[in-house]
């Protein structure tokens, strides 16, 4: 290329530098692109794990002082295995239940109830058929496992005795 031969030293140096610079920029762009592609490829299969990992973690406390009102910062606190803000048992499946079952009604409707897996299954089906509950996909099985395990019926016979633990005894003065 005849023009090159006519370049003076200064021009040549500037040209080389420009070439080097643009090469460096190009390389960084390629590197970035690679990281992005690898990231996306990794993210897809691990999506829910990553999201779970990014979401706030409940603080597990071992000491109980259930009478005390937690303030807003303690909102993800777990005491005695119970997630305070929702009253749900903090156990595998909790996140799925919190995410899907506290949207329409409070979790109190869940924690009040006891049923077998089949009974829970019927309740979910009823809500899907009549109350607008969405398709839970693979989470359905996890939610059912959780409910059947932690909100299972307890045998109590034809009629339970008065719950003496619950009675607040008081002195009644009579004439």
């Amino acid at each position: 290329m005849p023009n090159h031969q006519h370049m003076d030293e200064q021009q040549k140096e500037a040209y080389d530098k420009a070439l080097r610079d643009s090469f460096r920029v190009l390389m960084s762009a390629i590197k970035l692109l690679l990281i992005l592609v690898v990231g996306i490829l990794l993210y897809i299969p691990l999506k829910s794990d990553i999201q779970q990992w990014l979401s706030p973690k409940p603080v597990v406390k071992t000491v109980s002082n259930s009478g005390v009102q937690p303030n807003e910062e303690d909102f993800d606190k777990v005491e005695n295995g119970v997630h305070l803000a929702t009253g749900l048992k903090f156990a595998p499946g909790f996140e799925d239940v919190r995410a899907n079952c506290t949207v329409c009604h409070s979790a109190a409707l869940v924690t009040q109830n006891r049923a077998t897996r089949e009974g829970w299954d019927q309740m979910l089906t009823w809500m899907q058929e009549t109350q607008g509950l969405w398709d839970l996909g693979p989470k359905r099985a996890r939610i059912l496992d959780y409910l059947a395990e932690y909100y299972a019926p307890e045998a109590q016979g034809r009629r339970a005795s008065l719950d003496l633990q619950e009675i607040e005894w008081y002195i009644l003065d009579l004439e």
Binding site: S48, Q51, Q52, S55, P56, E95, R98, A99, N100, T102, V103, W134, D135, L136, G137, P138, K139
Partner: peptide, 10 residues
């Protein structure tokens, strides 16, 4: 939080 949490099939 509930709404921000991952709701599959949301």
């Amino acid at each position: 939080f509930a709404l921000g949490a991952p709701i599959v099939f949301g």
